[in-house]
């Protein structure tokens, strides 16, 4: 397997590695994949409740170099975006940016899933805290 320079860069210098307090109301956590499949991603976002802007993102990934790079890139991309903008990020953009070969597309799919799962988790918390006021966006 040969890797693009961008994958290697993210692998060697992963951005935003770490964890945030998953019980905090402003933090959304996405945990996707399964150890049996050889890939698990945890992606966390910290959202400003006033502006819905993602102010911070962290990840940890068990998976191949492309999976690590995809999730590292995902944290870079979601930062500074609103939740709705972050939902627009497509795995195909990750594939393009990292020049992933066809066998590694599922690593990018996992990163997209992780973003969605983190946002979904955050939204659930929002609804729980202010049940009447929030409109559900499906």
């Amino acid at each position: 397997m040969s890797y693009s320079d961008k994958v290697i860069d993210h692998y060697n210098n992963p951005r935003n590695v770490g964890s945030m307090d998953k019980s905090s109301a402003d933090v959304g956590t996405g945990l996707v994949g399964a150890p049996e499949c050889g890939d698990v991603m945890k992606l966390q976002i910290k959202v400003n409740p006033q502006t819905n802007v993602i102010e911070d993102a962290k990840f940890k990934t068990f998976g191949c170099g492309s999976a690590i790079a995809s999730s590292s890139l995902a944290t870079e991309w979601v930062k500074g975006k609103t939740v709705d903008q972050a939902l627009e990020i497509k795995n195909t953009e990750i594939v393009k940016e990292l020049a992933l070969p066809p066998v590694k597309i599922h690593c990018s799919v996992l990163a997209e899933d992780a973003i969605r799962a983190a946002i979904g988790d955050w939204k659930k918390k929002q609804e729980a805290t202010k049940p009447a006021a929030v409109q559900t966006v499906q």
Binding site: G33, P35, F62
Partner: peptide, 19 residues
């Protein structure tokens, strides 16, 4: 993330993975 969970005492066999 698996190492972190294991260190926190999570039994990885009992996690419901969204595979």
């Amino acid at each position: 993330p698996l190492y972190e969970m294991a260190k926190e005492g999570v039994d990885l066999k009992n996690v419901k993975w969204a595979a």
